[in-house]
Design a protein around this nucleic acid. Structure first.
Lengths: 203, 203
DNA sequence: CTGTTTTTGTATTGCTCAGTCTGTAAATCA
DNA sequence: TGATTTACAGACTGAGCAATACAAAAACAG
C-alpha cells in the first residue's frame, strides 16, 4: 500500500541505503514474533535488520511505529496464506482444514518462531494509544480473512468461533501442548464449522 | 497449603508486620492481572499491597517469586469457581455452561480486571527459567479443573478443546469483542462439548 | 532497663533501555 | 571540483527498573 515495487519515493540524491527496507522489516517482524514487543530492544532490532539505529528511526520513526509496521506485515502474510489455501483446494471446507492444520504444524514446529505475533500483541499491548489502531487493523484483517475462508460476513458468529479456536491453539501450544493435542482441538472445531463452510467454489 | 489460618510460622519476637500477607497477595494478584508482569513495577506493587519494598522482598524473595505466588493464587480462585459450579448445578452440563457464561461475563465486564493472568503469562513469560515451573503448575491446575468439569481425564481431547475455547475468548475479548460475540463462541463450544459432559451427578 | 530480633523506610547501586546528537561517509548536482 | 543531500556509526543522555544496604522503629525476653 505505502510502498510500491521499486520504491518510487526513494530520493535520487544523497548516500544510498546500505540495507533493504523490506527484508529488514521481515527480519524485525520475525524477531518481534519470537520475543514479543517488550523483550525486544532496539539493539536487538539493529542486529537483526542489518540497519543502524539512526536508520531505523529515520525510516519508521520510533519503536511503536516499527512494531505497527511489523504487525501489518504479519497480517499480510496470513492473508497470503488464506489466498493460497482458497486457490489450492476444491472447496472452502478443504481450505479451512488446510489453514487449521498448517497453523497447528507451525505452532508445534520448534524451528519456526513460536506463538502468534497478533495474539501476543493483543494481550501485551492493548491500551497503548500509539498502538491501538494498529491492533484494530490487524484484528480487522484477520477477521476478514476468516470470513473469506468461511464464506460468511466478518460479523458472523462462526468467524468469532474460528478466531477463538486459532487463538486458543496458540495459547495451548505455548502452554506445552503437542501436535496431537492441537489436532484434537482442530478436529472438533472442524466438526462445528464444516456445515457452515459451504462447499461453494472458493471465490 | 503453605499458610494455615493464624499463620503459625509467624515469629513471636520482633516488630510486627504492618500489613496482611494474604490480602497483600490478593491485591498484587489483581495488579498483575490488570497490567501483566512486565508493565507492573515494584513501586506499583508497593503501592497496591500497602507493604514496603523491603517487606515484599522479605516475604517472597524477588519479583519472579512474587509473580509465581500471584499466579498460584489466581489458579486457586478458578478452582474455587469450578467447585461452586459443580456444587450449585444439577449436572456437569449445567456446570460447564455456568463456567463459560461466567467467564464471558467477566471478560466483557469493564469493572473487573481484563483478560486472564494465566493466558497472558503463558504468552509473555514462557522460557524464563525462574517461572516455567509456576506456569506449568498453573496449566496443570487449570486442566485438572477442566477435567473435573467435563468428567474426563486431563489428557482427554475435550479438555484441550475446552481450554482452547476459554483462552480464545480471552484473546477475542482483548481484541474488542462484545458479550454477544463471546456468546456466539461459547454456544458453539457447548454444542460440541455437551454430549461429552455426561449428566452424571457432579462428584 | 538493656539487649535481641524482626520489620520498616528510604537512599543508593548498577543496569538496561528508548531516543538523540555529532561527526563522517557516500552519493548527486552544478 | 566543490556544494548539497542523505545515510551511517557510535557515543551519549536521561529515565526507569530490580535489587540491595543500612539505620531507625517496634515488638519481646530477661
Amino acid at each position: 500500500m505505502s510502498s510500491q515495487i521499486g520504491e518510487p519515493d526513494r530520493p535520487k540524491r544523497g548516500r544510498p541505503r546500505r540495507f533493504d527496507v523490506e527484508s529488514a522489516l521481515d527480519a524485525m517482524t520475525d524477531l518481534f514474533w519470537r520475543q514479543g514487543y517488550g523483550a525486544t530492544s532496539l539493539d536487538d532490532l539493529v542486529a537483526a535488520s542489518g540497519a543502524s539505529r539512526a536508520s531505523l528511526y529515520g525510516v519508521w520513526g520510533d519503536k511503536d511505529a516499527l512494531f505497527a509496521a511489523a504487525l501489518g506485515r504479519y497480517a499480510e502474510r496470513f492473508t497470503r496464506r488464506v489466498d493460497a489455501a482458497l486457490a489450492g483446494t476444491p472447496d472452502r471446507r478443504a481450505a479451512l482444514a488446510r489453514i487449521l492444520n498448517e497453523s497447528a504444524d507451525r505452532l508445534a514446529d520448534d524451528d519456526r518462531p513460536p506463538g502468534c505475533l497478533r495474539c501476543r500483541a493483543m494481550l501485551e499491548l492493548r491500551g497503548r494509544p500509539a498502538l491501538d489502531t494498529a491492533l484494530d487493523a490487524a484484528e480487522t484483517s484477520f477477521r476478514a480473512d476468516a470470513a473469506r475462508l468461511l464464506g460468511t460476513a466478518p460479523e458472523d458468529g462462526a468467524v468469532a468461533f474460528f478466531t477463538a479456536i486459532v487463538d486458543g491453539m496458540v495459547v495451548l501450544a505455548e502452554a506445552g501442548a503437542d501436535r496431537a493435542t492441537l489436532d484434537a482441538v482442530l478436529t472438533r472445531a472442524l466438526d462445528q464449522l464444516a456445515p457452515l463452510a459451504s462447499p461453494a467454489p472458493a471465490r
